[in-house]
Design a protein around this nucleic acid. Structure first.
Length: 248
DNA sequence: AAGCTAGACAACCGCCTATAA
DNA sequence: CTTATAGGCGGTTGTCTAGCT
């Protein structure tokens, strides 16, 4: 239905050249971000607008922090992923200088394996289902840990985890990117501090704003909304502590 | 030295939502 | 209210590189 954003003919694809990077950077420095569809033409690039946006956000933006993830960043990703699932943009929003693509790649190449090698099934490392369903509020970090330890995924969760979700939209949960190894797993002492304002970027995105609006009926709430409602409905008790060691 | 493999990461694709017309 | 379009997101693929045989 939607027209392709760019005429695929005559468009460059693949890796960006230095010259293209320079042209895009110069243009954005001069005119600012936005109107991505017009940028290629205006900047003289033979690229799709989406491609320009991605290149800028993931690579050229001056405030990007490049290089290895620090241990506290790693911890934070694991915690947030347990809470939010594969909502990379939300997770990246809590990591200054990191992009959703970077976090996603890091998760898929490092953290997933790391958790698996520790005998942890990331599939079951999902707090929000449990918390939302059982309406646990006001727990402390220690209580959180015991809640996780005692958590048995409901049949509903298990169905979703194994990809039989009826939900057509990308209901991403922690298990969706994991091999379907359903061996019993030991849940770690996560020590997750969950505070609404520390789990959402300061500049709330549309998605987050949406999440903070009135509660729809239980049945109408999809997985995504539940997570966000949970996040936004809780009053902060403790700031999220990214330095809290998780598995060390 | 050459070939193979796995890891890392950049980039693309398709879908969804928000919003302007 | 409906439709078209732009922007954004997550999943997936492609490519490059380092390490191993």
């Amino acid at each position: 239905m939607t027209k392709p954003c760019c005429d695929k003919e005559d468009m460059n694809k693949g890796a960006w050249s230095q010259q293209e990077d320079q042209m895009l950077t110069d243009y954005i420095k001069k005119h600012g971000e936005g109107h991505w569809r017009n940028i290629p033409k205006a900047a003289g690039l033979l690229r799709c607008g989406k491609s320009c946006r991605l290149r800028w956000i993931n690579y050229l933006r001056p405030d990007l922090k490049r290089g290895n993830f620090a241990e506290d960043e790693e911890d934070l990703i694991i915690k947030l992923h347990a809470l939010l699932g594969n909502r990379w943009s939300l997770i990246a929003g809590r990591l200054p200088g990191r992009t959703d693509n970077e976090v996603k790649n890091y998760w898929n190449s490092h953290l997933r394996k790391k958790l698996k090698s520790m005998g942890i099934d990331p599939k079951h490392l999902r707090l929000s289902h449990y918390l939302a369903r059982h309406r646990i509020h006001g727990f402390t970090a220690g209580e959180t840990s015991s809640a996780i330890k005692n958590y048995q995924p409901s049949p509903h969760d298990q169905i979703k985890s194994s990809g039989i979700a009826s939900d057509q939209h990308q209901v991403s949960d922690a298990g969706s990117c994991v091999d379907d190894d359903d061996s019993s797993t030991i849940l770690p002492d996560l020590n997750v501090d969950i505070a609404s304002d520390s789990c959402l970027p300061s500049g709330a995105t549309t998605e987050e704003k949406k999440a903070s609006t009135s509660l729809p009926s239980e049945d109408a709430v999809n997985e995504k909304t539940k997570d966000e409602q949970y996040l936004t409905s809780r009053q902060p008790e403790q700031p999220l502590s990214p330095t809290l060691p998780l598995f060390r």
